[in-house]
Amino acid sequence: MRHNKSGRRLGRNSSHRAAMLRNMVTSLIDHERITTTDARAKEVRKIAEKMITLGKRGDLHARRQALSVIREKEVVAKLFDRLAPRFSERAGGYTRIIKVGNRLGDNAPVSIIEFVDQEQAAE
């Protein structure tokens, strides 16, 4: 039985899954928009929302917690200096997932995950 076991396994062992999700969150914060499968996007959203919340806290402990997930100092600096102030008035829901159809090779459902205020940032 699978009671009280949260999160998707995504066809990987635990260390590979954790590394993949860390890399995807780093790319999302760096580029502010990534294209991936629906299941991966839903898993990345959980971690990305927590990283924005840490960025809004802004203290040294929060920065170190973010570094344990993100692993790139430049991306953590962007998170704390540029992204967190953009979401200072928002209480949650920093990302959106847009379904874009199925992938050609394996017919996997594909989505775009991006930050909610991306249109204002692009202008």
Rank of each mutant, 00 (worst) to 15 (best):
K42N: 13
A84K: 04
I52M: 10
R90N: 02
M51A: 13
K56F: 07
A66K: 04
L83N: 00
M20N: 05
R8I: 00
L67N: 09
R103T: 08
A121E: 11
V25S: 14
G92E: 12
I70H: 04
N13P: 03
R33D: 01
E123R: 12
V75C: 01
G105Q: 12
S15Q: 09
A77T: 10
R22F: 07
A66Y: 02
I113A: 08
T35M: 14
I113L: 04
Q118D: 01
G101H: 06
I97P: 02
R22Y: 02
A39K: 09
T35A: 09
M51R: 02
V100S: 02
N13D: 14
V69G: 01
V75A: 05
R33A: 14
H16P: 00
D106H: 10
H61V: 13
G11V: 04
M20G: 00
A84C: 06
Q118E: 08
H61P: 00
H16K: 09
A62V: 01
K5P: 00
H16A: 15
I70N: 04
L60Q: 13
H3Y: 09
S14L: 12
V69T: 15
S27H: 07
R12C: 02
V75H: 04
A122H: 07
S15K: 09
D106K: 11
S88T: 12
A62W: 03
G55L: 06
N102T: 12
D30A: 13
A18I: 10
L104K: 14
V76M: 03
V76G: 03
Q120M: 09
R90E: 05
R33T: 12
R33S: 15
A41P: 03
V69M: 13
A39G: 00
N23Q: 06
L21K: 06
E32S: 11
L67M: 15
R71S: 13
T26H: 01
R40P: 02
Y94E: 08
D117H: 08
K78Y: 05
Q120R: 08
L104D: 12
M51H: 03
A39P: 00
T37L: 07
V69N: 01
I52T: 10
A91V: 06
S88C: 02
E72S: 13
K56P: 08
